[in-house]
Amino acid sequence: MATVRDVIPPFQLLQPSSLEEAVELVADRRDDAWIIAGGMDSLDWLKDRTKRTEAIIDLSQVDELRGVRELDGGLEIGAMTTLTDVAESPLVRERFGLLAEAASLVASPQIRHQGTLGGNVSQDTRCWYYRSGWTCYRAGGNTCYADTPSAINREHAILHASRCVAVSPSDTAPPLVALDAQMVIRRGERERVVEAADYFVGPDLDIMRMTVLEPGDLLTAIRIPSTWSGARFYFEKVRDREVWDFPLVNVASAIRESGGRIEDARVVVGAVAARPLRLTAVEQGLAGQLLNAQTIARAGEVAVEGARPLRYNGYKVPLMRNLVQRAVRGGPLPASA
């Protein structure tokens, strides 16, 4: 049992009570404040003293940022909506069941009751070298400690690594990318809307960030357009324990079929790269095909093309292949497959 010696080092606490106050504060204090929503990712950094902050902007009192609303035939989910509320929302369950499913599989009940959707998609990676405070690339150094001959890297990337081999740990990110969701971001007076696929960044683009959020930005909502409503959805997460654990690999898909033929597909895999990976080659290969064993097998093979496992994460290649096949098929593969 960890020794409980953890008084968080002091910080100033700023608690805006409305959205406009929050936007203003986040912009004003962009140089020295850290936003917390549920705090489930943030507080550990501070307890561990691997990151510090002068000030915390706590969004807990900003009720405007909570809740699920209908918008143009789709949905708008406030950034502060808890994962439990996402998982239990009748609107989300009815229209975009894969997102409800993903939210219900995050961590543990208590964490879902506090952790927010905005925090879930904005959380930092769980690479423990980085989280333990090693000065790796992501922390501004010039080494990746997870990619050395003796490194323990069972949870790390098999695709698109670029110096850093950390992965995106989020369970809700793949469904949101699959649904063509949009992130609504405020900075002062200006609002911008970013496609979920572009919200997440890999180390090739910026090795020290997981998302496009910059200091001064406030994520206010996540919009899910009606584009995929009525499609066939699939979400699956594989983890070591059935509670608490982050995904080893997760998969989300949305597939539209007509007469046994696939019209259009989205297939997105998490925890294999630094951002949720939309598998466009798989999607293109599926379009227009009959949904049969051959199509399914081919999708799995295309999915893992170019995979480069590290010493301890080779298992992720067949795991990802199988999960993509199951996502395309819509369930477990028959024993013979």
């Binding site: 606490l13 608690q15 917390i36 489930m40 550990d44 706590d58 208590q110 506090q114």
Partner: peptide
């Protein structure tokens, strides 16, 4: 009415 981890929430966040 909701179970939460008291170790991982700031008291000020739930003061109301």
């Amino acid at each position: 009415d909701v179970p939460r981890y008291a170790c991982s929430v700031l008291t000020h966040s739930v003061r109301t």
